[in-house]
Design a binder for these strands. Sequence first.
DNA 1: GCAACTTTGTGCGTGCCTTCACAAGCGACT
DNA 2: AGTCGCTTGTGAAGGCACGCACAAAGTTGC
Lengths: 249, 249
Amino acid sequence: MTKPPHAGSADVAAARLRSIPEASVARLAVYLRMLGELAEQGAETVSSDELAAATGVNPAKLRKDLSYIGSYGIRGVGYEIAALVRQLERTLGLDHLRAVALVGVGNLGHALAGYSGFGGRGFPVTALFDVDPDLVGIHINGIVVEHVRSIPQVCAERGVTIGMIATPGPAAQGVCDLLVSSGVRCILNFAPVVLQVPHEVEVRKVDLAVELQILAFHVARKHLAGQDAATVNGHIIEHASNGSGGMLP
Amino acid sequence: MTKPPHAGSADVAAARLRSIPEASVARLAVYLRMLGELAEQGAETVSSDELAAATGVNPAKLRKDLSYIGSYGIRGVGYEIAALVRQLERTLGLDHLRAVALVGVGNLGHALAGYSGFGGRGFPVTALFDVDPDLVGIHINGIVVEHVRSIPQVCAERGVTIGMIATPGPAAQGVCDLLVSSGVRCILNFAPVVLQVPHEVEVRKVDLAVELQILAFHVARKHLAGQDAATVNGHIIEHASNGSGGMLP
DNA sequence: GCAACTTTGTGCGTGCCTTCACAAGCGACT
DNA sequence: AGTCGCTTGTGAAGGCACGCACAAAGTTGC
Ligand SMILES: NC(=O)c1ccc[n+]([C@@H]2O[C@H](COP(=O)([O-])OP(=O)(O)OC[C@H]3O[C@@H](n4cnc5c(N)ncnc54)[C@H](O)[C@@H]3O)[C@@H](O)[C@H]2O)c1
Ligand SMILES: NC(=O)c1ccc[n+]([C@@H]2O[C@H](COP(=O)([O-])OP(=O)(O)OC[C@H]3O[C@@H](n4cnc5c(N)ncnc54)[C@H](O)[C@@H]3O)[C@@H](O)[C@H]2O)c1
């Protein structure tokens, strides 16, 4: 295959990066966190079956995911956790910190700004922006909120590589343009709008209303699937809110 | 095909629900929101090309998505927005409200509880839970925070069908079990743990750290992909913030 | 040193999703 | 009324992802 008999050089890693399926990247991040927990509990090695069970994926899929990053497990034993963690961090680009800027320090923005899970995982929130004069100037977690117009300057100074947008929907595109013009190429968007960006910019959207709607769809589907499932637990209330919608033949 | 010459009957919808691809459901929700905006702006019809451009998807994919819900556009014209919205809402199960319970009213939970985007879209947050005695009893947006131990009773009383978990990671599984035993079959989980649930329960996880790691991976990939992409546009800044490749010590 | 057992890495079939391309249908204009 | 242009709906093909199943490779026990 494309895999040379010996690995570890930088260009091998570079070649692999291009070919890791997006879906696998998402799972690798989950494995990484679980491995961290296992390491804390004192485990030294872990088998694909164990790790798969803990993360809720198929063991074969997990092994295939890990094979993309060229990490070598030990047959008959499993994976050495410490080495695997190192390898995963390198592959995911976590071997150096990524400064994050957060724009929009409202309800959601406050929660995000105060969240330790970002900095603790290599994504220090390094800059905060808003337009509200009442917010500009205050400190959150030791970081001062700056005015949006400072985005280009501050992002450049602090080497921001990732932007998070938590403004109201109508403001999001403008903020996004500002970030992009400041050199930010990766954006995590919480506003319920589809951002238009140049092709070289990567946007991921966190859309909670959509998540709920997907769940609601499944609720509806379960309804239509019939009563058999509904009585499994014996006392499902099922909340038959109306008579016209639930038409079951 | 499976499509009868005339549609609109309820069992046709029922049959279709089962066969809509998961990926399409997620996009349908996005179309729905965009259609709402278009309607507000006074538009009466929209073509697949316009709607696709606005939501950032391929026009053919959009038409196929819409074909799953059996909505009929008008050839040569486009889709009648009002009718399409109605049809989408029926399909996604938005024709009746889905009561939502939120467990964990900390930083993130406060933002979620105060967010009007849920109730406004058919997902009223109807119950709040926490274990912190300082929080139990306070009101947020007119809803009183109850103790976690009341979950079964309150969820049953208020017909909760969807649960959101915003507790610390270690508490999430226990909370999840409580929700499930109360009849909640759909869960949106913000805690960074993989929940174990019976197969009939649907869990969706919102994992922001993973989102950032996916973005970080793309940052790394762009770096390694080389300069060719960086010069495509002629004046990409590439933000050579420091000589060592953007890593902060 | 050998045999039995365990676990990795992956080739391969299967099914889903995406995308192209085009026929069919509808309205507008002459 | 007929024709032209535009848009939908979908057949078909390609690509991607998933998961099975097994050979290769290592460990443990004797
Ligand atoms: N609160 C939630 O739980 C939640 C959930 C899902 C999605 N969202 C989305 O996240 C976004 C923020 O939600 P929120 O509840 O925090 O709203 P919010 O109104 O509390 O906060 C928005 C903040 O953005 C600031 N802002 C407005 N225009 C700006 C601009 N041009 N540049 C910079 N900052 C600007 C405001 O001053 C305010 O501080 C919204 O788009 C919302 O739809 C929020
Ligand atoms: N704050 C963020 O922006 C953010 C971002 C991503 C993920 N998260 C995740 O969301 C979760 C909540 O984050 P947070 O920042 O709000 O934390 P937090 O500590 O501010 O809030 C947690 C809340 O859960 C309550 N709680 C603890 N144990 C409970 C139990 N057994 N039952 C019910 N409630 C319980 C606590 O009393 C507290 O009010 C965490 O798992 C965190 O990793 C938060």
